[in-house]
């Protein structure tokens, strides 16, 4: 047993040593200090917003590199903290809940103010945009009609009969199942782990594998499939303004001005339109859509 352990350790050490210098040679070393590494989460809207930030900064002559589609907040936030990425588009409410599970704030300005205080040392958020993209409990038109649902309150009597779908992390987030349970006393029959407001969740709703699901309010699929977004009177889902989360060291005045200018122009309607563009049949690349919008909005 001991010998096996030694052999394993040897292999690990050897491969680690062997890997290091080469991976540095491969252009993977920490970016030089004047480069801003822009990251994105694993869903198209985040990718698009990250491209908008990156292209705008690049347009001002700032050196940028992109690390797109990293994963969910649970994963990429570690990357923001360890310096793997410097800048990522965020949503105020969920980000606040991520750094402080107990945060009670729900209103847009309260969330923003609380978020500024709650962020760990070295990380800041810049100006928030008026664009909001919330998690929401979404059902199909048929299910809404069957149970006459308008708000999550209407759903409560039926929770125990229904299967809910969403990203795996929805099970643990305070603004996920735990929140629905605490505020509405709604516990679903079953939770089915799907994806982050993506094709799985949409398909799950359409074929009735799940009767209710977590989607994003700016998702074009909601409109395209005539899904019904249930109102959230008890505010499980706090205000979710799009804003840049950035490493303070990289936030020069020029960077701040550029990103703030974007937040000023970005509203919910714009976000909906941009998402619709992304979902168009010819599936344009996000960087193209980002550049077009930047050009049209004069940034």
């Amino acid at each position: 047993m001991k010998r096996i352990a030694t052999a394993v350790a040897a292999v690990m050490v050897l491969s680690a040593c062997g890997g290091d210098p080469l991976s540095n040679g491969g252009g993977n070393n920490p970016a030089p200090t004047d480069t801003i590494v822009v990251g994105s989460a694993n869903f198209p809207e985040s990718r698009l917003l990250a491209e908008i930030y990156a292209e705008a900064l690049a347009g001002k002559g700032i050196k940028v590199s992109k690390k797109m589609n990293i994963g969910n907040r649970e994963l990429y936030f570690k990357g923001v903290q360890d310096g793997s990425i410097d800048l990522i588009p965020e949503y105020s409410g969920v980000l606040l809940k991520h750094v402080n599970k107990e945060a009670p704030e729900v209103g847009s300005d309260e969330v923003y103010a609380a978020l500024k205080k709650a962020l760990p040392q070295g990380l800041i958020v810049l100006e928030k945009s008026s664009a909001e993209d919330k998690d929401a409990v979404v059902v199909t038109k048929q299910v809404a009609a069957q149970y006459s649902l308008k708000t999550i309150d209407d759903l409560v009597p039926y929770c125990k009969e229904l299967v809910f779908g969403g990203p795996p992390e929805f099970q643990n987030r305070p603004d996920g199942l735990p929140g629905l349970k605490a505020k509405y006393n709604c516990e679903f029959k079953e939770f089915k782990a799907l994806d982050v407001g993506g094709p799985l969740t949409v398909a799950g709703l359409k074929d009735n594998t799940v009767q209710a699901a977590d989607l994003f309010t700016t998702d074009y699929a909601i409109k395209a499939n005539e899904f019904v977004v249930l109102e959230d009177p008890k505010n499980v889902f706090a205000a979710q303004n799009v804003l840049p989360l950035i490493n303070e060291k990289k936030a020069s005045q020029q960077v701040r001005d550029t990103l703030n200018a974007i937040s000023k122009k970005l509203d919910t309607k714009t976000l909906l339109e941009l998402n619709q563009k992304l979902a168009a049949p010819e599936k344009p690349e996000p960087d193209k859509v980002a550049k077009e919008w930047l050009a049209s909005s004069g940034i």
Partner: peptide, 20 residues
């Protein structure tokens, strides 16, 4: 299989990744 929402032991790997 778990990547596209199906079952199996992959669920543990993918959910573990999502929840860190």
């Amino acid at each position: 299989a778990a990547y596209t929402g199906a079952g199996g032991l992959g669920r543990l790997v993918f959910d573990g990744l999502a929840l860190q």
